[in-house]
Simulated scan of single mutants.
Amino acid sequence: MSGPVNGSQRVRLRTIDVARESGYSLQQVRDLERLGVIPPAARSDSGYRAYAPIHVQALRAYRGLAGAVGPVAARRMLAELRTGTIAEAASSINGVHVRLARERDESLRALQALEAIEAEAHTAGFEQERDAMTITELAGALGVRTSTLRFWEQEGLVSPERVTSLRARRYGLPAIRAARIVTALRSSGYGIAAVREVVDSLHRLDGREDARRVLRRRLDLIAARTVALLRAGADLAAVVTFAQEPPAP
């Protein structure tokens, strides 16, 4: 067998057949069945596992999902896709596309913020714009909690302007730009100490170059995750529709 799995789901496959078609080892196939990634295999009278083409499609779907959202989330999603309705499955998969698009937009905005910082550093007599955001507005724009912004403030990553006796926070353009970069770096898995180092060095050429490399690497990773999800599309559809079919007599 090679290429996409077609034909009747009544075809019986051995564990080695499923492993060969899916690219997983024999033990991985058994482990992923145990974890609920694929439906339980039928058993022959002699106790051997008997798989069907849907098991190969489920494993391929898992590979793509794992590349897009990570193995733990992929296992959870596939288990849900096999038991939910088509509408619920479509909503779940669409949610992954939306999150990837948001992450990409977030990283692009961080790159734009970095370019603005560089432009300020190289423009004599640059006059700051007067735009500012409240902590609620900035948190909403970044998709984080206000408590996260307060924590970043405590860690010296983003410094707001305090403008009232009630200590209400307002963030000017420099802080907004720094916050976008911090958001992208944190989403990339950078720890607080590493993010602080990048933020502190943003006004040095080498620091800005480091930040640019990180953000571009993140964009490449998001693109790879998106492609992995697209590749899983047909197999994910097969898993979802199979779950809605009545059991064979």
Rank of each mutant, 00 (worst) to 15 (best):
residue 229 L to W: 09
residue 209 E to N: 10
residue 214 V to G: 06
residue 74 A to H: 04
residue 102 R to W: 09
residue 193 A to P: 00
residue 232 A to I: 05
residue 137 E to N: 06
residue 110 A to H: 01
residue 119 A to M: 04
residue 80 E to T: 14
residue 91 S to G: 14
residue 170 R to G: 07
residue 125 G to T: 06
residue 18 V to E: 10
residue 63 R to F: 04
residue 195 V to I: 13
residue 107 S to Q: 07
residue 200 D to Y: 14
residue 147 S to Y: 10
residue 12 R to C: 07
residue 105 D to F: 02
residue 82 R to G: 01
residue 173 L to C: 04
residue 148 T to H: 11
residue 74 A to R: 03
residue 142 L to Y: 14
residue 102 R to F: 03
residue 214 V to P: 02
residue 80 E to S: 07
residue 65 L to R: 01
residue 14 R to C: 00
residue 208 R to L: 12
residue 68 A to F: 00
residue 55 H to S: 00
residue 239 V to C: 10
residue 101 A to F: 00
residue 179 A to I: 07
residue 99 R to S: 09
residue 243 A to E: 01
residue 219 L to F: 06
residue 33 E to Y: 03
residue 153 E to I: 09
residue 134 T to R: 15
residue 97 H to M: 11
residue 208 R to A: 14
residue 153 E to A: 04
residue 185 L to P: 02
residue 140 G to N: 13
residue 146 T to L: 04
residue 83 T to I: 14
residue 182 V to Y: 00
residue 13 L to Q: 06
residue 39 P to M: 05
residue 121 A to L: 09
residue 30 R to G: 02
residue 207 G to F: 05
residue 200 D to E: 10
residue 69 V to S: 02
residue 183 T to D: 03
residue 235 D to F: 04
residue 233 G to L: 01
residue 3 G to K: 08
residue 26 L to I: 14
residue 138 L to P: 08
residue 144 V to F: 03
residue 242 F to K: 15
residue 217 R to S: 10
residue 94 N to D: 12
residue 211 A to H: 01
residue 194 A to S: 08
residue 44 S to G: 15
residue 142 L to F: 11
residue 223 A to Q: 15
residue 233 G to T: 13
residue 109 R to G: 00
residue 230 L to A: 05
residue 131 D to Y: 15
residue 186 R to E: 10
residue 224 A to Q: 14
residue 210 D to V: 03
residue 236 L to D: 01
residue 143 G to R: 15
residue 230 L to N: 13
residue 72 V to D: 13
residue 201 S to M: 01
residue 93 I to D: 03
residue 215 L to C: 04
residue 41 A to P: 13
residue 226 T to N: 14
residue 73 A to N: 08
residue 42 A to Y: 06
residue 163 V to H: 10
residue 212 R to C: 01
residue 209 E to C: 01
residue 35 L to W: 13
residue 216 R to M: 05
residue 118 E to Q: 13
residue 149 L to G: 10
residue 168 A to D: 11
residue 212 R to H: 05
residue 176 I to Q: 13
residue 249 P to Y: 12
residue 152 W to T: 02
residue 198 V to K: 09
residue 79 A to T: 11
residue 226 T to W: 15
residue 37 V to M: 02
residue 203 H to C: 02
residue 56 V to R: 05
